[in-house]
C-alpha cells in the first residue's frame, strides 16, 4: 500500500487544490479503494431484476393502460 500511495502522490501532489495534510488523507483513501480494500457490497441480480420489474409494472404499464383507455 505504501508504494501505491507514493504512486498516487507522484501523480496528484499539488494538483488537487487541497492542503498537504488533506491530500495525504485523500491519497490513502484512493489507494484503499484502488486496492479493493474498501469494497462495499454491490447490488445482486435480484435487485436489478426487481428494479426492471418495478419500472415496467409501475412505470410503463400504467401509461400504456391509460393510453389504451383501459384505466
Amino acid at each position: 500500500m505504501g508504494s501505491q500511495i507514493e504512486d498516487i502522490r507522484a501523480e496528484l501532489h499539488g494538483r488537487t487544490g487541497m492542503s498537504e495534510e488533506i491530500e495525504k488523507d485523500l491519497f490513502k483513501r484512493i489507494a484503499e479503494i484502488e486496492e479493493c480494500r474498501s469494497m462495499i457490497k454491490p447490488m445482486t441480480k435480484v435487485d436489478l431484476i426487481s428494479g426492471l420489474a418495478f419500472a415496467l409494472l409501475l412505470g410503463v404499464l400504467p401509461v400504456v393502460l391509460v393510453g389504451l383507455g383501459i384505466w
Binding site: 484502488e34 479493493c36 469494497m39 457490497k41 454491490p42 447490488m43
Partner: peptide, 22 residues
C-alpha cells in the same frame, strides 16, 4: 486498479491490472 468489483462482488483487476480474488 480503478475497477473495484464485478456484479458478484469479486475483484476484477488490481492496480497492476492482474486478476485478483478478494
Amino acid at each position: 486498479g480503478y475497477h473495484i468489483h464485478n456484479r458478484n462482488g469479486e475483484a476484477e483487476t488490481n492496480h497492476n491490472g492482474n486478476a485478483e480474488a478478494l
